[in-house]
Amino acid sequence: MADPNLRDFYGRLDRIEKAHQRGYGFEAAGTLGRSHYGRGRRPGVGVVAPAVFVATAVILLKALIHHGIGAGVYDARVADLWQGQTALERIGAAVMQADPATLWLSDLIARLLA
């Protein structure tokens, strides 16, 4: 049978070793020890940054396509998507619709390449 005092002793040793790994060893009260200079908690990226990145990439891709094939052809293809048979085609038409940001970027690309 295991000695309960020995189990408590080894449990305390485990806690002390974990505290030392976190930098809590040998600190006097009121001083700045290793634990003060640790990595700390970094704020997470969350959902906003990836969503902004994806939206920016989609708008840039639309602007490149708009510039590459021309405004008339682009609008005709989006109109064909609006007349599509499936909901996926209509969703694609809504996403690919030329918005002001797309038109501005397309114009900027045209001015830069001219």
Rank of each mutant, 00 (worst) to 15 (best):
H67S: 07
Q97C: 13
W104D: 06
T56Y: 10
L88C: 04
R90Y: 06
V47R: 05
T56R: 12
R90D: 05
R12M: 02
V47F: 06
L113A: 05
K62F: 04
D14P: 01
Y37L: 07
A28Y: 11
G30K: 02
G11M: 02
I69N: 09
D107L: 04
A79V: 00
D8I: 00
T31R: 11
A87R: 08
R7Y: 02
P50D: 08
L64I: 07
A55V: 10
L13N: 01
I65R: 08
G30Q: 03
A93I: 03
V58N: 12
R77Y: 08
R42L: 15
T102P: 13
L112D: 13
A101S: 09
L112V: 11
K18V: 02
A51T: 09
H66L: 12
A87I: 13
L64Q: 15
Q83S: 03
H20I: 03
A29K: 13
L60Y: 14
G84M: 02
D14S: 02
E17L: 04
Q21W: 00
R39T: 15
S106V: 01
Q83W: 00
G68Y: 11
L113Q: 05
D99N: 14
G44Y: 03
Y37I: 11
V78E: 09
A87K: 13
V52L: 11
P50E: 15
G23N: 02
L103M: 07
A93W: 05
M96H: 05
E89S: 06
Q83I: 00
V47Y: 05
E17F: 02
Q83D: 00
H36K: 06
A101Y: 08
G40P: 11
E89D: 06
L112M: 10
A94V: 09
I65A: 11
G33A: 12
R22V: 01
L60M: 11
R111G: 08
V58S: 10
A93F: 06
V47P: 03
